[in-house]
């Protein structure tokens, strides 16, 4: 023994204080991150300050804006459903199956996300000027009509749904499907009875994201559908049209309606406990 003192009970450990360099680090990150949050909040407050309940009420009474709200709800819902219809099989195949050209398909699926929206609208416009496009137009008028709004929204929204669903299917262990096969399922039964029910939250997230993306879409709609009042006008084009005639109050009121719709969608996602899917890098 070297005579070291017997350790005595130190009592409850004092609360650890963040060391000075840590404080500096956390503070600098908080300032950098907080500045963005402040900017977001400022724009919302500025919008709210600029408008009044009277402006909102007048906007809601306008037949053009009411038409835009109805068309937005219809087109966004159809876009979300169409996106899921396509994104579920694509997401599953991309997550589970190796096939020739998968790398190329992966790149193609990301193009709508990185491409400038105006280019997507222009490309659609050109597509419907080609002989196959004109053949379709002979049966169903697409360009500058309501179907063009849905198609323009779908082009972008579907890419986000595909990304979300691919990540969802990748997260579900293939073992579950394999067990289902040994229990007597065909591949199709294993998908419908095991994989899809386990992916339900991802499917709901993908649908919600597609709906929200469709609501915010503007560039492709302007090019491919035009901005004709009471015909191809959705909420995003209403903001543009009201601005172009100098009616800033109505533009801001409609913008706030869109902010409210986006907030409801985000709230829905959070309350459904889907943030884990959204928060993951896609």
């Amino acid at each position: 023994m070297n005579g070291s003192p017997i350790p005595t009970n130190p009592g409850p450990e004092p609360r650890k204080r963040i060391l000075h360099p840590d404080r500096v680090f956390l503070l600098s990150f908080s300032i950098l991150g907080g500045s963005y949050l402040l900017l977001l909040l400022s724009t919302l407050v500025a919008d709210l300050a600029y408008t009044s309940p009277g402006h909102l009420w007048r906007a809601l009474q306008s037949p053009e804006i009411r038409y835009a709200i109805r068309l937005s709800l219809l087109s966004c819902t159809l876009t979300a459903l169409l996106s899921l219809w396509v994104a579920v099989p694509i997401g599953y195949l991309m997550a589970r199956i190796r096939f020739p050209g998968k790398g190329l398909a992966d790149v193609l699926l990301d193009i709508p996300i990185v491409l400038p929206p105006l280019v997507i609208g222009l490309s659609l416009l050109i597509l419907f000027q080609t002989p196959p496009g004109r053949a379709v137009e002979r049966w169903i008028p697409v360009t500058y009509a309501i179907p063009s709004v849905i198609l323009a929204q779908f082009m972008v929204a579907c890419a986000f749904a595909v990304r979300t669903l691919r990540a969802t299917f990748e997260q579900i262990s293939p073992r579950h499907e394999q067990v289902a096969l040994t229990l007597g399922c065909t591949r199709s039964q294993a998908f419908w009875m095991v994989v899809l029910p386990e992916a339900r939250r991802g499917v709901l997230t993908a649908g919600t994201l597609a709906w929200a993306r469709a609501l915010g879409e503007f560039g492709p709609i302007l090019i491919f559908s035009g901005a004709t009042r009471m015909k191809t006008e959705v909420l995003s084009t209403t903001v543009f049209l009201e601005l172009s005639v100098g009616n800033l109050e109505a533009a801001v009121a409609v913008s706030l309606l869109m902010v409210a719709a986006a907030a409801v969608v985000l709230l829905l996602i959070r309350t459904q406990g889907l943030e884990s899917t959204l928060g993951r890098p896609l």
């Binding site: 073992r175 394999q178 067990v179 096969l181 040994t182 229990l183 007597g184 065909t186």
Partner: peptide, 11 residues
């Protein structure tokens, strides 16, 4: 196919 083999599998 796995379905026709009639094997119980515990992973």
């Amino acid at each position: 196919s796995p379905a026709k083999r009639g094997v119980g599998f515990v992973p």
